[in-house]
Amino acid sequence: MHALSCLTSPSSPGKMLVVLRDGRKLHGVLRSYDQFANLVLEDTVERIYSGNAFAEKWCGLFLIRGENVVLLGEVDLDQEDDIPLRQVDFHVLDGYHRQDIATKKQRDEAKAKILYEQKGFCKEGGEGDGY
């Protein structure tokens, strides 16, 4: 039996959260999957977060290649209502979100530099590593 089979029952199509390797978070209804964890996600929205706010962008029907999936889980809609975040317009938050990503990238690069130059770690990433 496939590990995903417990997550998708045709009788109750729940809302699922998919996190991709590039950090994107997609919410949608899981319609199908295969042995590679390729996913079909219907009525998908992309969610971004920054500070104490979140925003959604409509994306529709997705076919995700399994390799890129980090996490897949059902969203508890009751608990979702209790999240102390406020929803704002996507284009309002988009800029802040990009800023967050850029800041994190800088931090990670600085960290990697110190680890490599002073702490004797090997270099990570580089050409081809992103594939």
Partner: peptide, 15 residues
């Protein structure tokens, strides 16, 4: 090449 793909977005009506 298939192995380079992250995802595909297809028309909603397709399903």
């Amino acid at each position: 090449r298939g192995s380079t793909i992250k995802y595909l977005r297809v028309p909603d009506t397709l399903l």
